[in-house]
Design a protein around this nucleic acid. Sequence first.
DNA 1: TAAAATGGGACCAATTCAGTCCTGTATTGG
DNA 2: CCAATACAGGACTGAATTGGTCCCATTTTA
Lengths: 150, 150
Amino acid sequence: MLRISKLSDYAIVLLSEIAREQGGQGVTARHLAASTHIALPTVVKLLKLLKDHGVLLSIQGRNGGYRLAHRPSDTNLAVIIEAVEGPIALTECMNEELDCQIHHNCNTKAHWVHINAAFRQALSVVNLNDLTRGTMPVRVSWNGDRAPAL
Amino acid sequence: MLRISKLSDYAIVLLSEIAREQGGQGVTARHLAASTHIALPTVVKLLKLLKDHGVLLSIQGRNGGYRLAHRPSDTNLAVIIEAVEGPIALTECMNEELDCQIHHNCNTKAHWVHINAAFRQALSVVNLNDLTRGTMPVRVSWNGDRAPAL
DNA sequence: TAAAATGGGACCAATTCAGTCCTGTATTGG
DNA sequence: CCAATACAGGACTGAATTGGTCCCATTTTA
Ligand code: FES
Ligand code: FES
């Protein structure tokens, strides 16, 4: 079916909520669980992931919580998804150092590199501001031409 | 990790091989299994899927086999992947009729529709000819502007 | 110093995915 | 005409991934 994981979706919801509520100090996992109706253990797990990948900052101890590590406009969907799911690599061939030899005469890899980049681009253009404020980036344009043979 | 399934990858390999070998008449599953080193039952399963979705034509009986249903230039990655994995729908919200209410005030759906389209676009521009002949479409361009709020 | 919060793992259940197997039908060369 | 070859269709299994839970340690502060 080719979809992002449910966890990534949750992460987007959580971050949107943090961006919306953030009033100087952190937002707690408990509070987020209540306001998003995502189970607390799951919320905790996700916030930790996002913190480990530099999307969130954490404040320990009583009155602790989480805050965005960067401005909402600098936190985009590509970053969020990569934090939760790992690097976006649509095929085996992409991010492995093992010399993938699935295809005979591999004309394929170059295409995947390109598709991967286009996809990541589409994701990276949408940021937290867009999600909370309802702004929207313009569309990708495609000139329709074809390049000459490799 | 966000990757296409192994089956989709196999399908691409199989179709490339068919496009390459196709000399008027069909190519058999047995032959494809031998030439691609993909296990026969798996090959059979995939060819059936591709046939059901109109990517391949089948000829039954002795001397039977499979042929491309359309010209190689009309068989693109989006079609192939959708045949094997079902429609490309990156989020729950996309292809379901159930009124997905994951997000509070959903500013999200509009973005996913857009990302989905951009992704499918990137896939659909690469066709079987490109894969077998080594030609390559040009890149997606992005003007960097942002549209006004919704 | 107790309560409230994150930190870090291990762990389990459910689903999805990859792959196999079996039985049936169509076609055709000999 | 019939046996061999190939596709048709589905049931089934094992493996891998994902989604989700649980437990206990550490940090901070009212
Ligand atoms: S061998 Fe991996 S993309 Fe070709
Ligand atoms: S409720 Fe599904 S995209 Fe917002």
